[in-house]
Nucleic acid binder design. Structure first.
Lengths: 343, 343
DNA sequence: CTGAAAGCGCTTACAG
DNA sequence: CTGAAAGCGCTTACAG
């Protein structure tokens, strides 16, 4: 008599087999030092023999801690199945690893910026906190972030670090990266730079890149570069470059706010008979895998993806535990390739 | 008196506010038709006003159903942060969407094939079932799959459909795709084809592609194509093409088992002064974004990523509900680009 | 159509 | 160092 033979074992089964009480099993398996080392080891052994694992739902329900975080991924208004921005996908890999290293489970959800994502996860106790990642109109984003703060939801987000201070924020130092690009242009003899990308309030990261470029060029005595708007897709880059060409505005260098934009722009330049880098140098941003495959290979700014994933997870954990953490800026690194070779 | 004002609301708070019992709230919010439509609507309204959401842990604990599935993603022995195979990342996006459409949460975890992933998720009631995705040595994979079956774990996997029947399987019809590639070579005047990729027991998908190529060529009276092994990375493709060139084996067409292999091979060919497609035609597999950016653009086989995500999720749900489902083959589609232009 | 009761499998004071 | 008791917030028979 005693143990029912059916179903997977519970902590009571382990307790019975070990001749201890059920709470002792719970303590032992969590490594509680108040259980004698000997008992702990014995229980651990039995649990393994019986193929026992702690029921995550019961544990989370009781402790009110899920050890799970939710990654909310925003996409552009035109979600094209096959062409998710590779940079964000690499970030996803990095966040996944950072979570695994810290014993956290990761829920993932793709969202539209417009949706009611701000209520779903933490409120239902699925997750202890959120990581926000992606792109889209920042002016839509801000009020939702405020709502998260009001609700007391823990979150960390990737994006523009300087722009506002609500929640934990991690991002590349875009202004500095823009200055690096400007310096590279100047050093390689380019004088007449154009920026491709949306540089307004809706895209503070792009705005930072533009700002760095502009300030460094002006310090060198050059005029502020003109700006041709584009969201971060290959198509938008193509269209922006066409607009640039049609405008008659001459230039010898293009700084595109992302690699996808740069790749689209290079396609437009090639169609128009402009040679890269002989006529026009091109620099992108992100260093996605495709950047080294273009003709010529694309000079770009590499972001610290591994560092970013870890910083995001750690910032979120800090917030969950009530520690204050300052916004975290990661350095960008210029990767020089053929598209900016000196002429 | 009555309601404690602190913390987030429970179903008891909603019941109190609605003047009904707590079980009625539970039924109403799940849309149980035994609750009168009027009561249901009233409760739904109150729940919304009080910002109530069902506690996922309590609900899963009681019902023994988590409505969550876990995606286990395997990587190659050499996991390079930045270069996860873009095809699988696109699959991830598609699976995410399929889950969202069906009201499922998705846990995601990157694993090494060697690790003990087969025990972690379903046993702890984190997930109702697993989706297995990725690449690696298939001979390592098989015993783990058997263990899943023995444990009664529900899973669906992406891969070679014909190879074995355990668990729900979804995959591209690789043999047919290989035959399409052969037909395309023959039609464009290629006679001397080489296969780049591991075509043995360790990689049944690649083996299927080779098998389709070989059978169609032999039916046309040609010899079986030689095979130069490569795992699915750009570096391996580069190395395999170098081996091919060094071997002195002449050819006028290469079928690479993946786009990454094809891209590496094209780099080796360019370095060796071989022109694509004038000297050698090249075909890849997957149609990753980079395939259209190479010089010349790469002819390849597009897999039905959207269909694959849906088929995987539906196959898993079927298995969880005890329905039998036959293995599901999806058609591949040849995408013709410059790398196979007739000479 | 609705309610009272039980229980899912844990963790956490509390007591000794 | 260990145990008896309570309770996390739901869902599910069962009764009416």
């Amino acid at each position: 008599m005693g143990r029912k033979p059916t179903g997977r074992p519970t902590s009571f089964d382990i307790a019975y087999a070990a001749g201890v009480s059920q709470p002792t099993v719970s303590r032992a398996l969590r490594g509680d030092r108040s259980v004698s080392a000997q008992t702990r080891e014995k229980i651990r052994q039995i649990a393994q023999d019986l193929n026992y694992t702690v029921d995550k739902n019961a544990s989370s329900l009781r402790s009110q801690r899920s050890n799970t975080i939710a990654l909310l991924f925003f996409e552009d208004p035109t979600p094209d199945e096959s062409m998710i921005n590779p940079f964000f996908l690499a970030m996803l890999g990095s966040i996944t690893r950072a979570c695994a290293d810290r014993g956290l489970d990761l829920l993932i959800s793709f969202q539209r910026m417009e949706d009611d994502w701000h209520v779903k996860y933490q409120d239902s106790h699925r997750a202890d906190g959120l990581i926000l990642l992606g792109y889209g109109d920042y002016t839509l984003y801000t009020p939702k972030l405020q709502k998260l703060v009001d609700q007391g939801t823990h979150y960390a987000r990737w994006g523009s670090v300087s722009h506002d201070a609500s929640g934990a924020t991690v991002g590349t130092d875009n202004v500095d990266a823009g200055r690096q690009v400007a310096a590279h242009f100047l050093k390689t003899g380019r004088r007449d730079v154009v920026f491709l990308g949306e540089a307004g309030d809706t895209s503070p990261e792009f705005a930072g890149r533009y700002e760095g470029l502009r300030s460094a060029l002006e310090e060198a005595g050059l005029a502020a570069p003109p700006c041709f708007a584009a969201i971060t897709t290959e198509e938008a880059g193509y269209a922006a470059a066409r607009t640039l060409l049609a405008s008659g505005r001459a230039c010898d260098a293009i700084f595109a706010a992302s690699d996808l934009i740069a790749i689209g722009a290079m396609r437009a330049l090639a169609e128009a008979g402009k040679r890269v880098p002989a006529d026009i140098a091109v620099v992108g941003f992100d260093d996605i895998p495709a950047a080294s495959l273009t003709t010529p290979p694309l000079t770009t700014v590499m972001q610290d993806i591994k560092g970013a994933g870890e910083a995001l997870v750690d910032a979120l954990l800090a917030q969950i535990e009530g520690r204050e953490i300052p916004p975290h800026k990661l350095p960008g690194k210029l990767v020089t390739r053929g598209s900016t070779a000196p002429v």
